[in-house]
Design a protein around this nucleic acid. Structure first.
Lengths: 205, 205
DNA sequence: GTCTATAATAGGATAGAC
DNA sequence: GTCTATCCTATTATAGAC
């Protein structure tokens, strides 16, 4: 994360912080100006359309950054030694995409100000989750160790895994306002994954 | 739902609608006055502390109403004929708690304006879900048909079931702004529940 | 208990100098 | 490209008549 000292980036940076902590409507242009160390007029030079344009820029940047972070790699191999471990790696990668202050803030803003955004902008998380889910389902089908009857079963398994992950994301980030992943929460996820996968693994481990 | 015509209730009613659709900060007292058909001064007679007091009242009422709606009944019997059916009934009950316009609106407000609320107020959903989860775990242990090794397993199963439900609630209500439960979404939940329970049911059906 | 009128302030946005 | 000064409107909240 290169801190660009250009005023435009500075404005985005302080505005993101303010929008995340106080909300878009409660943040005034004067607050942004003061925090960015610029004057009343300068803001409208960089963002002629004012506050809304700053919001759009923040949301758009955030989505782009997370989309690339969420392009997770799943080893499609049939010789996976530990599927559970791989699932936890996937979970950690997912969590990682919301770890940096910037990611976290723009995530909060994107969810909370959804009525000010386009459907496209507010649906990004569901879309991203669905894409990972599809690739997860594919990966499950290629794992011979799993006793899955058909592609429908793989779909269901992938959906359940993503539900477990997503519940944690929503609860911790959105409701509890908790950016750090506690060992406790992670352990509970691990146990659920273990419980879920154990009965459908073939006995020849 | 008795529509009370008292001005105080009318104010709460229109404010809830406005807060849900436009957000708290973007809603002015003038909008509320106009929509409620009262004058500038009347609002401050009923709510001396202004907008924030209205918000608190709405959130508090919403939590109380949902807490009672979420006091779901689980038949603790060991002779359950169809556990899957019972899970779907639970899901429908859960969904029902957010179905009425009033419930839906105050839910949206409670999540979105969480920075203006106390931790207690914003944690209610997680707490409610956890309570249902605990009773669900207990119920699972009492069902002989399920091949659950220990209480830990029942906990995990209950957590996974609630994750499946909660993901749907968040996605549909919060992100998609979709209050009606589509048959498609419900069917996907049913399949996941089936997939989850099938392998751990004893063969002697 | 509800009204009208208005005070006091803060909001977004712009003009024009430098 | 950045500043100061300011316009215009909207905001919350109150005073005082009825």
């Amino acid at each position: 994360m290169i801190k660009n000292d250009q005023p435009k980036d500075k404005i985005i940076d302080v505005a993101r912080k303010l929008f995340a902590s106080r909300g878009f409507e409660a943040t005034t242009t004067r607050m942004i100006n003061k925090a960015a160390g610029i004057s009343e007029g300068a803001l409208y030079y960089h963002f002629p359309h004012g506050k809304q344009e700053i919001l759009d820029t923040i949301v758009q940047q955030g989505i782009e950054s997370r989309v690339s972070l969420l392009a997770v790699s799943l080893t499609n191999s049939t010789t996976v030694t530990d599927i559970e471990t791989q699932m936890m790696t996937l979970f950690d990668q997912l969590w990682q995409a919301f770890q940096s202050e910037t990611s976290y803030q723009s995530f909060i803003i994107t969810i909370r100000e959804r009525m000010l955004l386009s459907d496209e902008q507010s649906h990004w998380l569901i879309d991203a989750i669905q894409q990972i889910q599809a690739r997860l389902s594919q990966a499950f089908q290629n794992v011979e160790k799993l006793a899955l009857n058909d592609s429908q079963a793989a779909d269901n398994l992938a959906m359940i895994v993503m539900s477990i992950f997503q519940k944690v994301l929503y609860d911790e980030l959105l409701i509890k306002n908790q950016r750090r992943l506690s060992a406790d929460v992670r352990e509970r996820v691990r146990q659920q994954i273990h419980f879920l996968l154990a009965p459908i693994q073939t006995t020849t481990n």
